[in-house]
């Protein structure tokens, strides 16, 4: 019985911590539904009963949709290009043995650790020289380079997981190499491609530092930049609007994130516990 009560005590502790941890997320949602007079009251309102969605209207009246379009374009280009390039590279690394293969894998691992914070000055100069500052193409190029290493690493694991015997069996059965690839390998890789695609999406959608450096004009802002400037201009007057903006930026991303969370943890520390 002693263990029973102990487990129960720990259970209560766990739930309390969980509530504290999710409180900021709840508070964001809650505040976004409050009208002016209630968000600026002496006592905070903990439940948005009789709330309003007018704050969302104020967000839509700002340049939210213009920045949404910029973000969507940059992210789209990044996801498609990164997936394609990384997939080709992963095929090479997983299915072939060639000179320089090991060094390439090592380089990929090291490169993914290069921080934007250590390189953005010269990346800014580079795009400036190519007349690509404030351009979707320029920013996408930097994003592709930023996500491709980890995407290669992730996809390589997935390609390794597709037994080559399956392809060979298809070849024996009279498929051409191309047919074997499209009918056997690609469908088996679909989950991996989805996971890597979502990873690239999250990175590009949420990225702040590089877009701050590259997109200097207000009309080229990405969503994180927009949220920052929207906060700056409404800090004094409209926290409900700011929270509504945060909700719009956060919720779609959170849904995607929950889909791939598991793979991202296992990718980073895979194989570390071996007993």
């Amino acid at each position: 019985m002693r263990t029973r009560t102990r487990q129960r005590t720990f259970g209560v502790v766990a739930v309390v911590i969980a509530l504290i941890w999710m409180f900021p997320v709840y508070w964001m949602l809650n505040s976004s539904f409050l009208p002016y007079n209630r968000i600026r009251a002496a006592e905070p309102t903990f439940l948005p009963l009789n709330g309003t969605v007018s704050a969302y209207g104020r967000v839509f009246d700002s340049n939210f949709f213009d920045t949404l379009r910029v973000s969507a374009t940059v992210t789209g280009i990044t996801v498609v290009a990164a997936l394609l390039f990384a997939f080709l590279a992963a095929l090479a690394l997983s299915r072939f043995r060639f000179k320089g293969r090991r060094s390439f894998i090592l380089a990929v691992l090291i490169i993914q650790m290069i921080p934007a914070e250590g390189l953005f000055i010269s990346q800014f100069k580079l795009l400036e020289g190519w007349q690509l500052l404030n351009s979707v193409i320029g920013l996408s190029l930097l994003y592709i380079a930023a996500v491709v290493p980890f995407t290669i690493w992730m996809l390589r694991g997935f390609v390794n997981g597709v037994p080559r015997d399956l392809e060979e069996a298809a070849l024996v059965d009279g498929c051409s190499r191309l047919q074997a690839f499209f009918r056997i390998t690609l469908p088996l890789l679909a989950p991996g491609l989805v996971a890597s695609g979502v990873y690239a999406f999250l990175q590009a959608w949420n990225e702040f530092t590089l877009s701050l450096v590259i997109m200097t004009r207000p009309e080229n802002m990405t969503l994180p930049l927009w949220l920052r400037s929207f906060t700056e201009s409404n800090r004094i007057s409209d926290w409900a609007g700011i929270m509504a903006g945060s909700v719009l930026v956060a919720v779609p991303v959170m849904i995607f994130f929950l889909l791939v969370q598991h793979r991202m943890t296992s990718g980073l520390v895979s194989g570390a516990v071996k007993g």
Partner: peptide, 21 residues
């Protein structure tokens, strides 16, 4: 679930909410 929610928040959205808190 509590931890996942915090983890999934985009950094900029988290920062904005914390400024409000």
């Amino acid at each position: 679930i509590g931890l996942l929610l915090a983890w999934a928040m985009p950094h900029l959205a988290s920062l904005t909410v914390w400024q409000w808190l």
